[in-house]
Design a protein around this nucleic acid. Structure first.
Length: 859
RNA sequence: GCCCGGGUGGUGGAAUGGUAGACACUGGGGACUUAAAAUCCCUUGCCAGUAAUGGCGUGCCGGUUCGAGUCCGGCCUCGGGUACCA
């Protein structure tokens, strides 16, 4: 099968080896093989119609190279690929063209796969997964049922972001705050708030575990911190205030119970349920008008327009539970209904927002924490800013004199005794809005039945501790899970993929699919009435795209299992991914959602480790040549395909890695690839002579000259270490140095050339395989092992010592490797330039760093 | 505002506290060639000098050190994330 070209002809070489790896299953993982395992995971792509972007091959080259390196080192490597194929663009295309999203997906996947192959990525395609495959989403639905039964899923009608253009609700995280107002992240369409019935997952119940689990993860610190901030755990207290003249009381959450004596007013959110009850008749018009205005604004708009604080007094007052003072209750939109209790105690002296508000409306500011001179004051000694630091309490009756920390505890204990408060923990993290009013997603395996029928349904199909109910078409309905035997619940065929303008999913029009009869004992379903069965209607929402991507890394381990999500013995053999490579744009959402599901699966006993991704690496973004983000509108997009045509996949791979550190954001530079192309031609010519025969100097000696030998061994060492640490850019530099040196040498050993080719193989696999074959080997270089360096060859027999005067370089000299301190210093002082610099000066110190430096300190 | 990253030649980037600029790209010069491509060699931080050499140089200011791109403190600036979370 050899193509004996005399020149480096990548277009002939590359497809041949791509076929070879696939046909020989060279890089397929083998379950239970008696070798150390290595599971390398890429973030799987959404197969869009546009095909691969230059950003995809960056991370994928790194993982492919690492995979080949690990394989050569003797690991049983699992490196799979799949498709995150549910999602909006495909569905938008379906709405426009009427083409079934399934068919579009099939085409796009085929295109992506071809492109990935052309780049030489040798995935284990026998383990390919596709989130839209019923055999896959059967288990996505299965996981949902487990969440449902554990009481971690519920339905809520609440104001959510709705995008009329996309016809669906969006999670808070999928909405961007732009100059034109809130817009959808995908497509940048206007979005609005609408109350719609939603499935929600109680991710907040895992808040503590998700924070605690971060501690042992080998992730970039910045990503861990990002998740930590996003979860936003804060410890504090819930405190109850009596309202004057009302039976109702008002609870607030605070992280600063130590400042309670300084609470001089309270604020409730405009959406607070108590608002209409407590506001006085005199104030009700003003309060109502204010609340209406606030409601029309979103959280994002409120924040945006928050240059000045606004608010209205409700006419009500509350009692400060420790000072007994009567304090006014205001309504203001700077207090969010979605965090804590939707109401706060305002301590203007020690909270920047409350301070600003108090100044605006001339409310009392009482300092209760001694700032020790840290806070700015005006001429009359009044605070001119809030002091938010800790300190000893003042103006706080019996608590005065205590420091913040002990006062917090003391006040909580006191309040708890009076049943007016308790220590609590709050999270910034909200429950996860888990439904979309779309067609192209996993259907919920849920049937809605009446209350009377619900009571007949077997417990195994229910969320027992927390029954899920809601109003559908004016009737109270209860959620029942389908039994496992009914999975997968597949998508029905529909006439139109267009969601209705009222926010109903296209599935709501699939009448035959929608209405059914269900056996209350087993959950079996039928489209015809059966004696003793009850009527029900299916859930018409579908799951968001995150669902399928939450657990795909598990399915690669056991992709075809029809009886379980994953077989326990395979799960134990492979464990979790040893390395997960993907963009930092998923630092919060995908990685948090997947961790949440994995924690739940761990609690269910499905997996044996609580955390899915022990080690995470973010590849950087490749910018356009103008240093800006690549985008069609800027016209700076580089297509991988055109590079492959002109330079070959090996050149593209090498160049992507040579651009800079993998984690860095770096601009593309088309000219730079010439250097890599030159390098590959040099490697080729180092082995293959112009007449197509082996270069005569290979094997012309059985001993390399010392310098070449040293550089070769140093290269094996550095390249191995760099691959291990994903430092591909410096590995390539070192291989260039090595190739330049091998080119200079008069005679080479065969072993030297073979070592170099092995080192290069992970990054330029096609070229390496071809040269390996050319040198007379049969079979893949993947099985040829990894070169080993000889430590003794790294030592130079003469070493260069740098001479400095006062820390400045002034010369150097060669010494035998075992030179002693006194000789080095004596030689330095005798050196022409050194003596010129120390002449007439007093030598104060002589520093000798063995084998490296002599520094003479002279004044 | 807060939280992360960065700032090194004309460019991408190298540098366990030890000669800053490895390795490349670009530019300049040369060899080979009828010519071009390819290839090879020299050169390429700035200033002064024919040169040897000297001075200056890793965003800015200061500190620690015999010695700082690297460690510490304070700024400036660019990029990303976040948005009143009590």
């Amino acid at each position: 099968m050899a193509t004996l070209t005399t020149d480096y002809d990548f277009s002939a070489i590359e497809p041949k080896w791509q076929d070879f790896w696939e046909q020989n299953a060279t890089y397929n993982a083998k379950d239970f093989e008696d070798k150390p395992t290595c599971y390398i995971l890429d973030m799987f792509p959404y197969p869009s119609g546009a095909g691969l972007h230059i950003g995809h091959p960056e991370g994928y080259t790194a993982s492919d190279a690492l995979k080949r390196y690990k394989k050569a080192k003797g690991f049983n490597v699992l490196h799979p690929m799949g498709w995150d194929a549910f999602g909006l663009p495909t569905e938008q295309y379906a709405i426009k063209t009427g083409m079934h999203p399934r068919d579009t997906t099939k085409q796009n996947v085929a295109h992506f796969k071809t492109q990935l192959r052309q780049l030489g990525f040798a995935y284990d395609w026998s383990r390919e997964v596709n989130t839209t495959d019923p055999g896959y989403y059967k288990w996505t639905q299965w996981i949902f049922i487990q969440l449902f039964k554990k009481g971690l899923a519920y339905v809520d009608e609440k104001p959510v972001w709705f995008c009329p253009e996309l016809g669906t609700v969006l999670a808070n995280e999928e909405v961007l705050n732009t100059a034109e107002g809130p817009r959808s992240e995908r497509g940048s369409f206007p979005v609005e708030r609408r109350p719609i019935r939603q499935w929600v997952l109680r991710i907040t119940e895992y808040g503590d575990q998700l924070i605690a689990g971060l501690k042992d993860l080998d992730w970039p610190d910045s990503t861990k911190r990002l998740q930590e901030n996003w979860i936003g755990r804060s410890e504090g207290a819930e405190i109850t205030f009596d309202i004057v003249g009302h039976d109702a009381d008002l609870s607030v959450f605070t992280t600063r119970p130590d400042t309670l004596f300084g609470a001089t007013y309270m604020v409730i959110s405009p959406e607070h349920p108590l608002l209409s009850q407590i506001c006085s008749s005199a104030q009700s018009d003003a309060v109502f008008a204010y609340a209406e205005k606030a409601k029309s604004k979103s959280d994002l708009e409120r924040a945006e327009l928050s240059k000045e604080k606004t608010g209205v007094w409700t006419g009500a007052t509350a009692i400060n539970p420790v000072s007994g003072k009567e304090i006014p209750i205001w309504v203001a939109d700077y207090v969010l209904m979605t965090y804590g209790t939707g109401a706060i105690m305002a301590v203007p002296a020690h909270d920047a927002r409350d301070f600003e508000f108090a100044k605006e409306f001339d409310l009392e500011i009482l300092q209760v924490i001694d700032d020790n001179g840290h806070a700015e004051k005006d001429a009359s000694g009044e605070l001119s800013e809030a002091y938010t630091g800790p300190g000893n309490l003042i103006n706080s009756d019996e608590q005065s004199g205590k420091d913040s920390e002990s006062a917090k505890k003391a006040i909580i204990i006191q309040l708890a005794a009076e049943k007016r408060g308790e220590a609590t923990v709050n999270f910034k993290l909200r429950d996860w809005l888990f439904s979309r009013q779309r067609y192209w997603g996993e259907p919920f395996p849920i049937v809605w039945v009446s209350k009377a029928d619900y009571e007949k349904v077997d417990d195994s199909l229910k969320s027992i501790e927390r029954p899920v109910s809601c109003q559908i078409d004016g009737e109270l309905r209860f959620a029942v899970a389908l039994p496992e035997s009914a999975l997968p619940l597949t998508l029905p065929e529909v006439d139109s993929y267009t969601p209705s303008p009222d926010g109903q999913s296209p599935l709501s029009k699939a009448e035959e699919w929608l209405h059914l009869y269900i056996d209350p004992k087993t959950g079996a379903t039928s489209s015809e009435p059966v004696e003793g069965w009850v009527t029900g209607s299916r859930e018409t929402n579908t799951m968001p795209q995150w669902a399928g991507s939450c657990w795909y890394y598990l399915r690669y381990i056991d992709p075809k299992n029809t009886d379980a999500l994953i077989a326990p013995e395979k799960e134990k053999y492979w464990g979790y991914p040893d390395l997960y490579i993907g963009g930092a744009e998923h630092a919060v959402l995908h990685l948090l959602y997947a961790r949440f599901w994995h924690h739940v699966l761990f609690d269910l006993g499905v997996v044996s480790h609580p955390e899915p991704f022990k080690k995470l690496f973010h590849q950087g973004i490749i910018l356009g040549e103008d240093g800006e983000k690549m985008s069609k509108s800027r016209g700076n997009v580089v297509s991988p395909e055109s590079i492959v045509v002109n330079y070959g996949a090996d050149a593209l791979r090498l160049y992507l890695m040579f651009l800079g550190p993998l984690e860095a954001m770096k601009p593309w530079n088309t000219k730079g690839i010439e250097g890599i192309a030159r390098f590959l031609r040099k490697v080729w010519r180092l082995v293959v002579a112009e007449d197509g025969t082996r270069q005569a100097k290979i094997g012309a000696t059985d001993q390399l000259d010392a310098e070449t030998d040293r550089i070769l061994n140093a290269t094996i060492k550095k390249v191995s270490e760099d691959y291990e640490a994903l430092g591909f850019n410096t590995a390539i530099s070192q291989m260039m140095i090595c190739v330049n040196q091998l080119g200079k040498a008069d005679a080479l050993t065969l072993d030297a050339i073979e070592s170099l080719i092995k080192l290069l193989a992970p990054l330029a696999p096609h070229l390496a395989e071809e040269l390996w074959l050319f040198l007379g080997h049969t079979g893949s270089i993947a099985t040829a092992g990894w070169p080993v360096f000889d430590e003794s060859k790294l030592k130079e027999d003469s070493i260069k010592i740098i001479f400095q005067v006062n820390g400045k370089y002034r010369g150097d000299a060669q010494f035998p490797a075992d030179v002693c301190k006194d000789d080095a210093i004596a030689t330095a002082k005798a050196h022409e330039r050194i003596s010129a610099h120390i002449e007439g000066k007093v030598i104060k110190r002589e520093i000798y760093v063995p084998g490296k430096i002599v520094n003479i300190v002279a004044v």
